[in-house]
Simulated assay, not measured.
Amino acid sequence: MPIIGAKAFGGAPLSGDRLVRVVYLDESGHSSNEDAAIVSGVILDPDKQWLLLTNEIEALKHKVPEQFRDNFVFHATDLESGGKYRRDWSDEERWTLLNELLALPRKLNIPLVAGFFTSGLTEMAIHFGSLKLCTR
């Protein structure tokens, strides 16, 4: 049932009764040596997608070698370059798992968002995980 009179931030009327979305964002890292930054993420409809995504991620964790499975966190850098896993987990297996992880948004119809900027256009200050953009 629509919420009567409710409007989106842009002023358009809202439709439907499931208005909440959960947004997960991450930034590419930052340093004074970098001249660009990227922020990307997913927008979840928690009523429809959260449990599906959680189950898919848990299923992928079972593909992680058993010696690494406890407290395993998917981190693209570790899966791509190997890091602490390089000796005991083949590149091909890590890359296959990373590709399966990256395929989940398309598989589950989860929207992706991304933004970037270069130091020539803007400055970036990151404070305790929040992103603050300042134009010059």
Rank of each mutant, 00 (worst) to 15 (best):
A76R: 10
A6E: 06
G82S: 04
A76V: 01
N99T: 03
W95P: 01
L25F: 03
H30D: 12
L51A: 14
V39A: 01
P105K: 03
G41N: 04
I4V: 11
S130L: 06
R18W: 03
R21I: 07
C134M: 08
F117I: 13
D26C: 05
A59V: 11
I3T: 13
S90G: 14
S28D: 01
L53C: 02
G10L: 11
Y85H: 12
L19D: 14
L133E: 04
S28K: 04
D45S: 06
D17W: 03
E93S: 15
R106D: 10
D45A: 07
P46E: 06
I3P: 07
A114F: 09
D78R: 11
L97Q: 01
D78M: 12
N99L: 05
V22N: 01
V113G: 08
F117N: 03
L112K: 05
S15E: 07
E123N: 15
E27T: 09
D47I: 08
T96P: 00
D88H: 15
T135F: 11
P2Y: 06
C134K: 15
F9Q: 04
E93M: 02
T77M: 08
D78Q: 08
L104M: 03
L19I: 12
R86T: 13
S28T: 01
E100C: 09
G11K: 00
R136N: 15
S28H: 09
E80T: 04
R21E: 00
F9M: 13
D70V: 06
D35I: 12
H75Q: 14
G129V: 00
F128Y: 11
H62V: 08
L14K: 12
H127K: 13
L60F: 06
I43E: 01
W89D: 00
F116V: 12
I126A: 02
P111S: 09
G11F: 00
Y24T: 10
L133H: 00
D91T: 10
S90L: 15
S130W: 03
A37Q: 03
I110D: 13
V42A: 02
F72V: 14
L60H: 00
D88V: 00
I57V: 13
F9C: 14
N33D: 15
W95S: 14
M124P: 02
D26P: 00
A36F: 15
L112I: 06
A125R: 10
E27D: 06
R87C: 04
T77A: 07
S90E: 12
H30I: 11
G120L: 09
L133Q: 01
G5S: 03
L108G: 04
G10Q: 02
V39P: 01
L133N: 10
T135P: 05
E27R: 00
D45C: 12
P111W: 08
G120Q: 08
P2R: 06
T135H: 09
G29L: 03
L97K: 04
F72W: 09
K48H: 10
L133Y: 09
